[in-house]
Write a protein that binds this DNA or RNA. Structure first.
Length: 316
RNA sequence: CGCGGGGUAGAGCAGUCUGGUAGCUCGUCGGGCUCAUAACCCGGAGGUCAUGUGGUUCAAAUCCCAUCCCCGCAA
């Protein structure tokens, strides 16, 4: 084992946790930088980022600058004097001054096959776009947005019904393994560095609430992708009589059902507690397995239909 | 004290405004019927109506007060 490599770890959400855990296992000397606690939930209670929880449990120093590129952030980083810096879903932009501090540079773990899906929500967008494959890439961080040289890459197939929470979990574990392999090769001097082909690059935007709005004129497959890709947040949704309805789980329909083929997209063409809930789409119907009306709990469609009549009512 | 919805049988809901025997759709148990079903028919069990030995009342799931829990929005 490499003794006492000093690593500054910058990460925030669950995705970054397995990577941090790996570095802890390695016994590196760590300092963690993460986002400040944010108000969450109904009473605006402050909630610590998952990475902070892990760090505290392991007695690792934690800093929560609003901006790590601030004077104070830079000063703190310099004082720790890391050999290497690692970022994983940090959510802050590093300055050149930050990047110049660690002699070995800065490695970023990014959940896409770069140069595709640079940006903030690559996992979600790869599902929404209906990609067959995605993966994790480690790269040398530079000043651009996910533009640094590619180091290692691992490709995975996206499951047909896999939602982005499941894919997140899968990729976060793969990312953690890829990270330590990257560090090993970096130290061994065998690490490849490949420039990104800017012509092939695509960039994905942050998800907005509005991203999850379902337009039932889309195809069943597109809707299924949207539901899976926005799972958990912002969650695919539609409205019925001004009531917000979250669509949690859908299933593509393979059976031949008898329903009104002339119904408008969004119409509940079959809404039977014994069969389920089926909504007309642009090219057929889609089954809604789990959904949630505003103010009420998330539940499976068949249960909901026991108490709520949705037959021939329409989602917009 | 951010705004709003809700807690009624194992599940999902109605009933609350206008106080007067606890209902519906399922499930479950028992029986019947059908070549068959998203089946159908008959019968039964199962609730201190979130909590308060709270207030009002002849009478509270329902009105008033307090507390707890769940959910949506906003951040």
């Amino acid at each position: 084992m490499t003794d006492k490599l000093k690593v500054a770890f910058c990460g925030t959400p669950d995705f970054a946790v397995p990577s941090l855990n790996k570095l802890i296992e390695r016994g590196y000397q760590l300092t963690v930088f993460t986002q400040p606690d944010r108000p969450k939930g109904r009473n605006n209670k402050l909630v610590a980022p998952p990475v902070k929880e892990i760090a505290l449990k392991n007695n690792i120093p934690v800093f929560q600058f609003e901006k790590i590129r601030s004077d104070e952030g830079v000063r703190t980083l310099k004082k720790f004097a890391p050999d290497l810096m690692v970022t994983a879903a940090f959510g802050q932009i590093l300055s050149q001054e930050n990047l110049d501090i660690p002699p070995l540079g800065c490695i970023n773990v990014h959940a896409s096959l770069l140069p595709k899906y640079r940006g903030a929500a690559p996992i979600q967008w790869s599902i929404i776009d209906g990609e067959e494959y995605t993966g994790v890439t480690t790269m040398m961080t530079d000043i651009g947005l996910d533009t640094g040289d590619i180091l290692l890459k691992e490709k995975v197939k996206i499951g047909e019904d896999e939602n982005c929470e499941e894919l997140f979990n899968r990729l976060s574990l793969i990312g953690a393994d890829l990270l330590v392999r990257t560090i090993d090769e970096l130290l061994a001097g065998t690490l490849p560095r490949i420039k990104q082909d800017a012509n092939q690059a695509t960039r994905c935007a942050m998800l907005k609430k509005e991203t999850g709005k379902i337009d039932f004129r889309m195809t069943s497959q597109q809707i299924h992708n949207l539901v899976r890709g926005t799972y958990s947040w912002p969650c695919a949704h539609a409205y019925m009589d001004d009531e917000l309805v979250k669509i949690w789980v859908t299933k593509k329909v393979d059976t031949d059902y008898d329903y009104n083929k002339d119904a408008e997209p969004g119409m509940c063409v079959i809404a039977n507690p014994k069969i389920g809930l089926f909504i007309k789409t642009g090219d057929g119907i889609i089954e809604v397995k789990e959904l949630q009306f505003q103010g009420s709990k998330r539940m499976d469609a068949k249960s909901l239909l026991l108490g709520k009549k949705l037959q021939d009512r329409k989602f917009i």
